[in-house]
């Protein structure tokens, strides 16, 4: 099986899916990434991350409604799974504990 480590961009996408809650589909994720970070990821980058997150079992997907803006194409919504949530928590804990080990970080 593939490893369950989170890459930097994967983690970002995973967090955005959590933020967007019920409205997490491809275009919305891209816009949110842009709004939150100022980065302009390509469709390929986002979908390849989504594909990997699916393979790792961190998200699940279901088809939703179609809109006029999508010229009749249906949306695919993504949701965090339990494994996805705990992966986010674990990453955060690891970050926090490492962060606290750096002495006087705010001074520098």
């Amino acid at each position: 099986m593939k490893g369950t480590n989170l890459g930097e961009f994967e983690e970002l996408v995973l967090l955005i899916i959590g933020v967007l809650q019920d409205n997490a589909y491809g275009a919305a994720i891209m816009q949110e990434v842009e709004n939150q970070t100022g980065r302009n990821p390509s469709v390929g980058a986002v979908h390849s991350s989504l594909n990997r997150l699916m393979e790792k079992g961190f998200i699940k997907s279901h088809y939703g409604e179609s809109t006029k803006a999508r010229r009749g194409r249906r949306k695919v919504f993504y949701m965090l799974t339990a494994a996805g949530r705990s992966a986010l928590v674990k990453t955060r804990e690891l970050r926090n504990s490492l962060f606290s080990l750096i002495p006087n970080i705010s001074m520098q």
């Binding site: 275009a27 179609s66 809109t67 999508r70 949306k75 695919v76």
Partner: peptide, 8 residues
């Protein structure tokens, strides 16, 4: 899904 995202 990709086409939809692209268009939107």
């Amino acid at each position: 899904r990709v086409e939809g995202d692209l268009l939107e």
